[in-house]
């Protein structure tokens, strides 16, 4: 009764197709970029850059779910590599508060000389930063601030309000030059519930007010390409003629630009935010994106330099004081076609 099992023609066909699909799929996951990594920022710190006491810097940041955060870790590593006296101990990035606390605890236990911390949440990581300071390890607090000043030696970060101001001034001046009265100014925010988004919007509105302009419409996206695309598509429908558009974030800006292109709209100019390499390449071209205001992840590189100076008991070369400052707020810079060439190497890939 047993007939030998001959594979059916259909079986062979499906099997063959599955194998082919698998082969194709496997061939398609390669993602090696063509270009090598960008040249790291040049060293220009004067005497301070000469090798000094050996320093071990502990580093902890959130996991990279966004181009900007990915660039933070990369910038820190690139700068650390340039110093022969620096050993960087970067712990596994995580978005889990508990894990970040234990990661920082492990760095304290390893007795690193100085810590650079970008907390997932300043308030929730405050205790462990304080613990490090109490154990005699200076903490350089990167961007998201700890509420307790005893928890860090130096804070360095960007200026969200200033970012809005920079965008507002670019838009305001440009529209004043063009002599536009009652301009339609549209704003696409990031996640609306975040204080940083509210600061950006406030700065934008305040700067526009100095030109007697105000924001006509604003909508929030979620920092993702897709959300930027959807919000922009609807906003373009709502406003048939726009004079200027500010989009808070260059990562979501990719989606915004695609929506503008697909709606075939060219009557306005757009300003971006953060300073991604992609946005800068757009600025070099002749599309609607004319400028972007930076909130640059290069701050992580600066944080590593400051941490090294603190550990080596040195001051900053251009300041009179003998020790590094307690707080550094980085200015939001406006990147336009005129200066984009100098900024492009610092832009991050989103």
């Amino acid at each position: 009764m047993n007939t030998p099992r001959i594979p059916s023609r259909r079986g062979l066909l499906i099997g063959g197709a599955a194998v082919a699909a698998g082969g194709l799929a496997a061939a398609c996951t390669g993602n090696t970029p063509e270009e090598a990594s960008k040249p790291a920022a040049a060293i220009n710190g004067g005497d301070n850059d000469k090798p000094g006491t050996k320093v071990t810097i502990g580093f902890s940041a959130p996991a990279a779910d966004h181009g900007w955060i990915a660039a933070i870790t990369k910038n820190a590593q690139d700068v650390a590599k340039n110093y022969s006296d620096v050993t960087l101990r970067a712990v596994e990035p995580t978005n889990d508060i508990n894990q970040q606390i234990s990661a920082v605890e492990s760095l304290i236990a390893a007795k690193v000389n100085v810590l650079v911390l970008l907390p997932n949440d300043g308030a929730q990581l405050n205790q462990v930063a304080r613990k490090a300071m109490d154990a005699g390890i200076p903490v350089v607090n990167l961007d998201r601030v700890f509420p307790d000043k005893l928890s860090y030696r130096t804070w360095i970060g960007g200026d969200n309000y200033g970012m809005g101001v920079a965008a507002g001034h670019y838009v305001g001046e440009k529209l004043k030059q063009k002599n536009v009265s009652n301009p339609v100014i549209v704003e696409i925010q990031g996640i609306a519930t975040l204080p940083l988004t509210q600061d950006r919007s406030k700065g934008f509105a305040d700067a526009l007010a100095t030109y007697d302009f105000k924001v006509t419409a604003k909508q929030d996206a979620k920092f993702t390409v897709e959300s930027g695309n959807q919000v922009a598509a609807n906003l373009l429908q709502a406003h048939k003629k726009i004079d200027a558009l500010w989009n808070h974030d260059d990562d979501q800006g990719v989606g915004v630009l695609a929506a503008i292109k697909q709606a075939n709209r060219k009557e306005f100019f757009m300003v971006g935010g953060a300073g991604s390499a992609n946005a800068m390449r757009e600025i070099q071209g002749s599309g609607v994106l004319e400028a972007t205001v930076t909130y640059s992840p290069t701050m992580a590189g600066s944080a590593i330099r400051i941490a090294r100076l603190i550990a080596q008991d040195k001051g900053m070369a251009d300041l009179v004081e003998q020790r590094a400052p307690q707080s550094l707020t980085l200015a939001s810079e406006t990147v336009t076609k005129d200066n984009v060439a100098t900024y492009l190497p610092l832009g991050f890939e989103s």
Partner: peptide
């Protein structure tokens, strides 16, 4: 469709 719309592929699509 989302690739055509946004000109990108991303793990954040379709949240």
């Amino acid at each position: 469709i989302i690739m055509a719309r946004t000109t990108t592929g991303s793990a954040t699509h379709g949240d």
